[in-house]
């Protein structure tokens, strides 16, 4: 709680810098406009002009806020101009990709921990698979899957899955190996079966690692989905709003889509955090 004041100070400073930046970047255009209308701007007029342009190079925070309000609350949810509609398109793909990615990651981690062959031969390739900049080849994946008849939802979910499985695998392997040799021996002296050892010792001790990596994975899944939405010709989703905004120079729209994505990321991470608290309490941690 004692961090509230510093955080608010930093945020206020960021917004102040933003307003100043808006003045600096939009001043040229404002001066040109004034010159055409044969009037000179005083400093205060100039500042007001730079904060209220239709297509500013950098929109002022309140313009973005107004746009966000208009496209979320004022518009009907079913409307194609509603940010809620686009946000939902993105969110559903993100969740699907994240779900598959997390399941795949956990399964791979269990296999790697229990099989020496998997550990030796697959683990290095799990790491190497991340040197391929998947975001960069998202257009190819979309186009190729399109040509074999898969459209819309699935290709984007595949990209999101690919991005989110890696952090889960790495974190979960670390977590499943977290019990010390002493604890493992203790399980053995109790004559615990392999399954019991897994459920009672390895799984609980991996929880903190799992949830840390789940938070990373859900953020990565969102980024993957947004990039996956770019090459499909900007139909729907936050990524599509970004692209459409950049085609038509609608900077306010780009920024509001960015903020929509930021809010979505925050909510997703928060949701994982709440889930973590519920699960860990259920398992008897953290009292």
């Amino acid at each position: 709680m004692r961090s509230i004041v510093p955080i608010l100070t930093v945020l206020a400073a960021l917004i102040a810098i933003w307003y100043a930046g808006a003045v600096a970047l939009n001043a040229d255009w404002a001066r040109q406009q004034a010159e055409r209308q044969d009037r000179t701007l005083t400093t205060s007029e100039l500042i007001v002009e730079t904060w209220n342009q239709d297509r500013p190079r950098l929109p002022a925070p309140h313009q973005v806020a107004v746009e966000l309000w208009d496209t979320t609350v004022e518009k009907k949810i079913t409307s194609k101009r509603s940010l809620v509609y686009h946000g939902w398109v993105t969110l559903s793909v993100t969740l699907a990709g994240f779900g598959f990615g997390a399941a795949l990651g956990i399964a791979l981690a269990v296999a790697i921990v229990y099989s020496r062959t998997m550990d030796r031969s697959v683990m290095p390739w799990v790491i190497a698979s991340q040197t391929i900049p998947i975001l960069a080849i998202a257009p190819m994946i979309i186009v190729v899957l399109n040509s074999i008849g898969m459209q819309g939802f699935i290709p984007k979910a595949i990209i999101a899955t690919y991005l989110s499985f890696f952090p889960v695998t790495v974190g979960m392997v670390k977590g499943l190996r977290a019990p010390s040799a002493m604890q493992l021996d203790q399980m053995k002296t109790w004559n615990a079966s392999g399954l019991q050892g897994f459920l009672r010792l390895r799984l609980p001790s991996s929880m903190p690692y799992l949830f840390t990596s789940l938070k990373i994975a859900v953020a990565a899944s969102l980024v993957g989905t947004i990039i996956g939405e770019l090459p499909t010709g900007a139909v729907a989703g936050l990524g599509a709003r970004l692209l459409a905004g950049s085609y038509y120079g609608q900077t306010v729209q780009i920024w509001s889509a960015l903020f929509g994505a930021a809010v979505l990321a925050a909510l997703l991470i928060l949701a994982v955090g709440v889930f973590e608290r519920i699960v860990t309490r259920h398992m008897g941690f953290g009292r």
């Binding site: 004692r2 100070t9 190079r57 969102l222 990039i227 950049s246 120079g249 960015l258 994505a261």
Partner: peptide, 28 residues
């Protein structure tokens, strides 16, 4: 003071899809 303010904000910003700012920078 700054440390306590910047760490949570920075952590949050690091999780955002900053790559989405690419069209803005291309414009600038």
């Amino acid at each position: 003071f700054l440390k306590r303010g910047l760490l949570p904000v920075g952590n949050f910003m690091a999780a955002l899809p900053i790559i989405g700012m690419a069209p803005i920078f291309v414009m600038w």
